[in-house]
Design a protein around this nucleic acid. Structure first.
Length: 449
DNA sequence: TTAGGGTTAG
């Protein structure tokens, strides 16, 4: 049946006042879809999926079975949960609530909003859930860490495909139960009904990475060949990561080289971070240059790798240059971690003034790691005043950090400030007595300052 | 010509 077309009322929607005389559901659905996907570079569009949907209703364009799955894709954070609920009720009003595509979209919407309970309600109301719905509800429980519920559903489902197995495996790996993951993978192979794919192996590699076990990693890698899989960029990135984290930078590099022109931002970044992790700062920096030459744009994570290589190599001027290029050349505003790297870099080089200068320009509140980096720099070059300030900040932000109390008390002793030293010792005693969670740090801070 | 489950860097 042909969907009837509707005239667009131009006045109500200036920028949708296309010269087309008619616009039908198909176009409206795709207009919604187009607005769900983020644009490059990010813009502030004049319309949102919701506003388009509302106008669609206003113009009495008939909704169809595609409309809600698209619209629901725009709800993907806990902040938008209320809106998601309203859309859910609209599916009931418009009579699409018993469509399995709409229902699965609702389950996944509630999952991304962190509301497993509602996801489960939708699922439980389905008389005959199909495979995507089962997979979707398993995924909801996996994301929420409800592994036993996920497993229960996994066992109960009438049929399983590779996604079902991968989701369950992912749950175990995600929540640190790697042994269970390997066991389940064994079961998957034993049953031999469903073949593992690139997704499955990626998850398995994440498990190896978590265990830091090169043996497991090599074993998983052999599966890639046994299964006749092509190493795509995602799988390649997982392999690079795994080898780097399991201690074999040589194997990581080999995988990286074999990826050839398929290399994307993720693959480059994994290799760059791996080299940084292994202290190969020269290779790391030259790889970064290659990346830029290849016209792959680095992002904030890439720079974390590059900067940490500079920290480990003690490359102050290179680090400084990279830090500047990051915002000037690539438009990436440094995060607290980037500042942390730089302050660490300056600190280790004994450039406490430089570290202070940078710290003072930070647009965000320096965190414990920043103060910690400044502290270790100050300790190296014996800048006792900076030590005192940093330690007070650390205690202020992390009142349970007993090492900081001891250090601060020592600092005061060294400065001859015996009263202050005593005071910090007392404070620590008090803290030990009142080791009750919820005792606010303000009490402690109040006495320090 | 449009739709719903799973993977990668910290």
């Amino acid at each position: 049946m042909k969907v009837p077309t509707r005239k667009l009322i131009s006045l109500t929607h200036p920028s949708l006042n296309l010269w087309h005389p008619t616009i039908d559901s198909f176009i409206w659905n795709n207009l919604i879809r187009a607005h769900v996907q983020p644009t490059h570079p990010p813009t502030r569009p004049a319309h949102t999926p919701l506003s388009i949907f509302l106008r669609m209703c206003f113009h009495a364009v008939p909704l169809d079975f595609y409309t809600f799955p698209f619209l629901l894709q725009s709800i993907h954070s806990p902040q938008t949960l209320q809106l998601g609920r309203s859309i859910h009720s609209q599916t009931l009003i418009f009579g699409f609530s018993s469509d399995s595509f709409v229902q699965t979209s609702l389950i996944s919407m509630y999952t991304t909003c962190g509301d497993v309970g509602s996801a489960r309600k939708v699922f439980d109301e389905m008389p005959q859930p199909d495979l995507p719905s089962w997979n979707s509800i398993i995924n909801a429980n996996v994301k929420a860490g409800l592994l036993s519920v996920a497993r229960e559903l996994f066992v109960k489902m009438p049929s399983r495909n590779v996604i079902s197995w991968s989701s369950m495996l992912d749950g175990y790996v995600r929540w640190g139960q790697c042994e269970e993951a390997f066991e389940l993978f064994g079961q998957m192979k034993e049953e031999n009904k469903v073949m593992p794919n690139e997704y499955t192996v990626s998850i398995l590699l994440a498990a190896c990475e978590q265990l830091g076990s090169l043996e497991h990693g090599k074993w998983a890698h052999t599966h890639v060949y046994k299964l006749g899989m092509e190493i795509n960029v995602v799988l390649g990135t997982s392999l690079i990561e795994m080898y780097a984290k399991c201690g074999s930078i040589v194997r990581a590099r080999l995988v990286f080289e074999n990826l050839g022109p398929k290399r994307d931002l993720m693959a480059w970044t994994a290799m760059i971070s791996g080299l940084a992790m292994h202290g190969h700062w020269e290779d790391c920096l030259s790889l970064f240059s290659n990346m830029v030459e290849t016209r792959v744009r680095p992002d904030d994570i890439t720079f974390l790798g590059v900067l940490s290589a500079c920290v480990h190599g003690g490359l102050v001027s290179e680090g400084k240059a990279m830090f500047e290029r990051m915002s000037k050349e690539f438009g990436i505003s440094p995060s607290v971690q980037h500042y942390g790297c730089m302050i660490d870099l300056y600190g280790r080089a004994g450039l406490i003034d430089e570290a202070w200068n940078l710290l003072n320009t930070m647009p965000m509140e320096p965190d414990v790691l920043i103060w910690g980096a400044l502290l270790s720099g100050a300790r190296i070059c014996g800048d006792i005043e900076t030590c005192e300030i940093a330690l007070n900040k650390i205690i202020e932000q992390d009142p349970t950090n007993s090492a900081a109390y001891v250090l601060l008390s020592n600092v005061y002793a060294k400065m001859g400030r015996w009263k202050d030293a005593r005071h910090i010792r007392d404070l620590m005693e008090t803290k030990r007595v009142k080791k009750v969670p919820g005792l606010s740090s303000i009490e402690v801070d109040g006495r320090i300052h």
